[in-house]
Design a protein around this nucleic acid. Sequence first.
RNA 1: GCGGGUGUGGCGGAAUGGUAGACGCAGCGGACUCAAAAUCCGCCGUUGGCAACAACAUGUCGGUUCGAGUCCGACCACCCGUACCA
Length: 845
Amino acid sequence: MSRFNPLKADAAWQKVWEENRTFAARDDSPKPKSFVLEMFPYPSGRIHMGHVRNYTMGDVLARFRRMQGMEVLHPMGWDAFGMPAENAAMEKKVHPGNWTRANIATMKAQLKRLGFALDWTRELATCEPDYYGHEQAIFLDFFENGLVYRKESAVNWDPVDMTVLANEQVIDGRGWRSGALVERRKLSQWFFRITQFAEDLLEGVQALEHWPDKVKLMQENWIGKSEGLQFDWTLSDGEILPVYTTRPDTIFGASFIAVAADHPIARKLAASDDNVRAFVELCKQGGTTAAELETQEKLGFDTGLTATHPFDSAWQVPVYIANFVLMDYGTGAVFGVPAHDQRDFEFATKYQLPVRRVVSEGDKTEPEFRDAEAYTGPGTLVNSHFLDGMDVADAKRTVIRRAEEGGWGKGQTVWRLRDWGVSRQRYWGTPIPIIHCERCGVVPAPRESLPIALPEDVSFDIPGNPLDRHPTWKHVDCPKCGAPARRETDTLDTFVDSSWYFIRFASQPADRPFDKAVAEQWLPVGQYIGGVEHAILHLLYARFFTRALRHIGKLDVTEPFAGLFTQGMVTHASYYQMEEHDGLERKAYFEPSQISRRGDGTAFLTETGEDVIVGRIEKMSKSKKNTVDPTEIVDQYGADATRWFMLSDSPPERDLEWSESGIEGAWRFVNRLWRLFENLSEAEAGTGRDVDLDKRLHRTIAGVAEDVESLAFNKSVAKLYELVGAIEKAQPSASRTDAIRTLARIVAPMVPHIAEEAWAAMGNPGLIADAEWPAVDPALLVDDEVTIAVQVNGKLRDTLLMPKGAAKDVVEAAALASDKIVRSLEGKQPRKVIVVPDRLVNIVA
RNA sequence: GCGGGUGUGGCGGAAUGGUAGACGCAGCGGACUCAAAAUCCGCCGUUGGCAACAACAUGUCGGUUCGAGUCCGACCACCCGUACCA
């Protein structure tokens, strides 16, 4: 008997699949269509275990759906634009394109090595003109339909690197790379009008049945709908100040007004008053990190202005400038009701402003507010003139109605969601197809000039955008008037690239982004699988794209992803020693391959014997050096064992801890399978039926199908272990032979190489990848005998083997006759006997 | 702070309100072997007991129920998201 040779089998079957184009999806197939998609990778260099887990899950589902008779689209591509390529260009002096394409080649080979059932004929890379050219066409479509616009917007500007930084790249107010103090700069930038679809995006996400609640909630919060009143206050200098509130009911609890430091009123005052200017400057200081905001003191500056209460012209409230008011939400001005808003309460306490109760809390109705915290709960309006006695909702409606009648305010919905700024001052991205002409202004690039390709001859020696300083690229004649003009040198946010790649996978004509009819055959994606880190931005942007495309009549799909699954991370312990660096303590990490563990859990460097600290179990990352290269594992154990381990043990939505013993267990299982398959082809088939084994087989077929359908791979793995154990123990019989032959098909989606090997060895024609999922005989799913638990006062005392469907009184009699039960009752009379048919008997005594 | 999730043996985890701990990993004992690897058989929550068995046990405390890991209420711990959103 030989051991399974994965190296040989993997390569052989991967070649067969490739030559037969087994996994190429046919647009014209008469079969029902299924689109299985995993989030495409960024080509960072090599694949990591997270990729392997993600793509294995999708692969099992894709192969399973094929076996169920569906035409499956399971494509792969590369999210190939982005910063790391430019960083590599700066550090290693390689062109971003060469670096990226070399990484793609490496990673593609690594993915192929795992035997994924991918349709490589549809492979795409977003950094190639035959992809981003079509993206430019979509940009022009959006532009023509008013979904794209340009506006001045503040950005984080790194004056040394001469580039715009994302918020995540600003650390303690300094650029992450240069360390220079970041400036807020106004730049003219391109925006997608995502807020136009805010309501629809919110309603749509709520209707997605096959999305995790967690992700739906995150999207809802991000869109952030709130309903309230925008209304005017007249200031003592005669200006009108619009204020937005979600609590118009508390209008009679108003204590002060606060405006943002960059509010026009504050700016106007700052121009003539040094004290105001000093305070405004103070507000701009301080970081924007979570920790700092939390501890930051609420600061206010009394402008000396007052505002007239809209319901009482004699009532004046002071107007402050405050550091906690945001200019870009609502109107940049709030009115403070300290009794019923915690933040207002803190502010009022600090500046000794009145705190007046206007909503009752239990039996507390008096206007004097003495509690240590604001009351934000429900109640009846008190001390509020005509609102007294109403509940909060009624009072809100009443105030909004009065404001609208009086012409000084109106009910308004405000969204947290902002329009999507897509301009990036970078080289390695999709050029924005726009030309700036001094005479004609902003002119879209002519369609026939697409794709507008990136120039290859660029340098990264000096900071700034290489496109902007390229000697010729940006100089172009205006398409309208022919005068010398300038190309837009900003490129698109890489999230734009990933907002429509799934459409391009479904249909990829050469002359346009996609064919409407063909794309609609496949879309929406039936099952989308990826990391939860994309729960908000990527998924929201993709949902915006399909809506925008539908809006302009290009594609009749609303939701891009009907089913979503967010898988957990692959984790591993990290190992480090503390070392001193420039007087600072820091961790120096070691790779797991350098480490040996002792029985007590401590660890040391294998080579030197030095102790190392065993750190947290956390996501595999290069910076923590706690990565395990999938390729080394595949080379050692084969693709099937690696895949099997990825599916075992941990529920897919939870983190999976990598372990050496885990992969060895998977390898053992692959060999157990192999022994069954190989002995079958050598030994003569048994005769006679083994009904228990038949039943177990059919239960497993049904159970595994159900588990795979719901992506509960750890459960299907457990069921397969049980079946294999039962087959191993069973005496030879026709049933056992059937079971082994069928087993190959049940495991095929998970361990496809050994399954093909077995399928061929058993003399079957064709490929197991094309075989049908085994049929379940429903008659074998029911048992004729059941084990019934017998409890006394809810505690298990005995079990009975009874025919299925036995009458209640028969079961009860059998239970009461049991020796163990008689003993447990200790002579007490049963007061009550509960019989659950085919399950249990509970005797209450 | 707010929102969400998780909490079960040494570990990963199973369990439509109905026999808690399936399955895997690790460990222990045995078989085979000159020996090892591989493989096979057995044991494996805690405590007491030779055993039969009993008691305890699903983060904590309470509740609903004939019966709770599962439902309800309060709390604790950890993880994730978010950031002064008026």
